[in-house]
Design a protein around this nucleic acid. Sequence first.
DNA 1: CTGAAAGCGCTAACAA
DNA 2: TTGTTAGCGCTTTCAG
Lengths: 341, 341
Amino acid sequence: MAEPTLRDVALLAGVSPRTVSNVVNGYAQVSPQTRAKVEKALEQLDYRPNVLARNLANGRSGQVAVVVPYLDTPYFAELLQAIIPRVRARGFNVLVDQTDGDRAHEAELIRRKARGFLYDGMILSPLGLSQADLAGRDPDLPLVILGERSSDGAFDHVGIDDVAASCEAVTHLLSLGRRRIAAVGDQPYATGEAAQRRTAGYRLAHERAGLPVDESLIVQTPRFNRVDGATAMARLLDRPDPPDAVFGYSDLVALGAIRVLLERGLRVPEDVAVVGYDDIEDGRYSTPSVSTISPDKSTIAEAAVDRLLRRIESRGPVTGEEFVVPWTLVARESTVGRGAP
Amino acid sequence: MAEPTLRDVALLAGVSPRTVSNVVNGYAQVSPQTRAKVEKALEQLDYRPNVLARNLANGRSGQVAVVVPYLDTPYFAELLQAIIPRVRARGFNVLVDQTDGDRAHEAELIRRKARGFLYDGMILSPLGLSQADLAGRDPDLPLVILGERSSDGAFDHVGIDDVAASCEAVTHLLSLGRRRIAAVGDQPYATGEAAQRRTAGYRLAHERAGLPVDESLIVQTPRFNRVDGATAMARLLDRPDPPDAVFGYSDLVALGAIRVLLERGLRVPEDVAVVGYDDIEDGRYSTPSVSTISPDKSTIAEAAVDRLLRRIESRGPVTGEEFVVPWTLVARESTVGRGAP
DNA sequence: CTGAAAGCGCTAACAA
DNA sequence: TTGTTAGCGCTTTCAG
């Protein structure tokens, strides 16, 4: 049984498709009588507009792509959870994709050929993308980049100041009297910019405190997961001069590290204090709860969606904006022990 | 600068749009010479098909909606992570939405009017949906329901046998000698079917063991989050006759309960053993790690996607299938202590 | 194997 | 205010 079309409604109501369209979309002025007639026909046929046809006629898909590296990483899941309702509230649908942090995949997504008018814009949280990849992107694609990368002026960027935040996290540990602070998560290669900013913050904190950095305490991990934190921590504890504190580049890294510390009978924070990054929910209810850098996710989502839709709706190119989101250091049990908030 | 269309390519190549379409889609046989000409033109113009137009002509959107209650709940995030690549591998895009477990929202999504050919089918993981809501759904929408609800024959259903799994979880606790096992997460009202099946399994385990059920140990929680587990656990411990084991209706509930137990200085599992449900990653790295019912998420995703796409591709109605996915009980530290796998 | 042409269902410029 | 009509860009039937 074929779906009723605008035409069917028009025929039934004895008006033109144009008028029905006006009624459906609330355009222009329609006389009350006509409107009533049309609405009755609409009702009678149980008409629902065909979005596909509308999209084609409009030249817009009404869809926005949101792309993150991993959906099952709590930070990105929480971010997505914040973004989706906001996009939908503005009348757009959300197409979701994950890249597994694969640089080629990320680069492909923003390249010209990839899109086929399937989405009107994209919010991308890249992991491996290089500046060169960004340079080769589709210049007509409204794009908001999330995370630790500054805009080159042609797309919007939303994120927190990672260097400052990392510096604060490490300063917190220093202020607790810790002097052998491990930095867990460095990635000193092209696709590790996010990690490198945290390392920069780590160095900055030491510098400001007039303390030297023990390079051997800066540990690399392939990713920012629990297993990475666990593996790194185990290695650190096997050294003759283990650290008395850990700055994990994500809360998952911190949780993995804590897991190993407790397994080895060490106390957190008494023996080793740990601070993480992201403020995911897991860290709030773990034992001990995890001190962390808490980026304001609502603000990030709000800003990203707002920037993107503004750009889509204004069509033509707009100059890229840099939007720096506030963050806070949340001190929980993993650094200040029981009685922490 | 307007995008090149099929027509432009045809003009440049000196053939008809029909032929270009054939080449682009690999349809029919095209003579090598013609093909070469067309491909050159394609290349030259950097042509990319307009998906919107193609969709309209095909009467299909090439999109699948995947709807879960909460994106930031690890179980659903992990499920989504498993589903998305599989859908994309079959050439479809994924539209994601979350319902916040709101029954009205869920019911609306499967109602006739909601869709506008925007998606060709839906995978829905309902929380509050009633049988009546399901009865009122759009009969033409290919639908796969995930979770604890049996099919009425007109849609597919994929899930594990919750009663059996819950029974096994509780039997595990009984086999460890526990006799005062709390069940945390019951929801004895219309929208709590999922919870009720777990409770049924809890009862069944006792029945099989020939043991009575202490009704006061079956505790209700509004949701299955950490905070619910924590709150319930606190109340249980305030009783004069606290439990010696807990069956949490999700791993989050279990983690929340463990958190409170440790805070109060109790040992897990020595004083109180805890088992959860879902096998989320958090439970594997927490201290102690959480024993749990592990549904086979890959199989769930695989089955759901396969059923849905099969239905979409075969168009006409197919009889609904019930697909029962295997699960396992994973005994970790929260029940068997250190040395657990 | 390829061309001509009729839609898919909706929007919107142009008329009336 | 409302009707007429020409697309949006692609697919596909029917000829040739």
